[in-house]
Simulated assay, not measured.
Amino acid sequence: MKPLTLWQYEARRAGWAALLGPPIAIALGLAAAAANPLPGDASTARILLGTLEMAVPLAAGVACASLVGRDPAVELQLTSPTRYRLTLLRRMAVTLGWTAVFAGPAAIVLVATGWWARWPENHGAFVGQLTWVAPTLGLSGAGFAAAALFRSPGAAGALVTTLWAIQQFFAGLAQESRPGRLLYLFATTRGTAPDDWTANRLTLLGAAGALTALAVVVLGRSERLLREEDE
């Protein structure tokens, strides 16, 4: 199979959640910013950056949570020369790449038009891109690991949305301890303790790597996949 054809196939297998989630998230964020009833550019800028920090990671996380368990006959995948976990990693890469196709240009437009700088806690045009990169990778890693452990896209997606909602609606409780602050997803637009932002973003990136590695280990246990397929 030619490389381009292979990646096109993996994009189709990733599903509609992966393809439609990012553009819908950004469209809803733009609509919310346009309808913002609060005065001042800072509040609108917060909504725009919040779209990248909140809506885009949720869309990517739910999409990655749906990657495992989509194949109707896993035993056939396991007989392929390409290991099944590598196939799923390709689909995760497609999902994250597609997310970046929308989130990256959106961030560039915000920087170019000055809206990025109108939020006081923007952390700059370059390093500030961790505003969306870190939580997107963090939630995506959590979704992928949950899918590998549960073998249920529904259960994994529910875990991702629950984690997102807890941090969204109980921000104060989530930030009461330093571990909670380091794993807080919305440190740019919802705030964090002074000097914790960089550590927070790096912690999310580290968590993303660790959770993805956990998923790869779990998916490497072919006997477990076959047993659950039979069930």
Results as ranks from 00 to 15, higher is better:
47 I>S: 07
151 R>Q: 13
215 A>D: 05
230 D>S: 15
10 E>R: 02
17 A>P: 07
16 W>Y: 12
22 P>C: 15
65 A>E: 01
127 V>N: 01
102 F>Q: 09
198 T>H: 03
201 R>M: 13
41 D>V: 12
15 G>I: 13
140 S>L: 03
225 L>K: 02
70 R>K: 11
208 A>G: 05
161 T>E: 05
16 W>F: 15
192 T>Y: 04
94 V>Q: 01
174 A>E: 03
226 L>F: 02
143 G>T: 03
100 A>P: 06
80 S>A: 14
23 P>D: 13
210 A>N: 05
46 R>M: 14
135 P>L: 10
16 W>N: 12
151 R>I: 00
138 G>C: 14
132 W>A: 08
179 P>S: 05
135 P>A: 09
184 Y>M: 09
69 G>C: 05
91 R>C: 02
88 L>T: 00
208 A>M: 00
73 A>T: 05
132 W>G: 08
73 A>D: 12
46 R>C: 11
25 A>I: 15
98 W>F: 14
142 A>K: 04
59 A>S: 15
202 L>D: 02
62 V>R: 03
16 W>C: 13
134 A>W: 00
71 D>Q: 03
111 V>T: 08
158 A>I: 12
110 L>M: 10
33 A>C: 14
38 L>T: 13
158 A>D: 02
133 V>W: 02
32 A>S: 12
111 V>M: 08
3 P>V: 02
200 N>C: 10
214 L>G: 06
15 G>R: 06
95 T>A: 12
222 S>F: 00
144 F>M: 03
119 W>V: 05
30 L>F: 13
103 A>P: 07
179 P>M: 06
165 A>S: 12
16 W>H: 13
33 A>R: 09
61 G>D: 06
57 P>A: 05
12 R>G: 07
104 G>D: 10
18 A>T: 10
157 G>Y: 05
31 A>E: 04
55 A>T: 09
172 G>C: 09
169 F>H: 11
22 P>F: 10
50 G>I: 11
44 T>Y: 11
47 I>R: 00
176 E>V: 14
208 A>H: 01
201 R>G: 04
199 A>K: 09
116 W>G: 02
4 L>K: 04
181 R>I: 08
56 V>I: 14
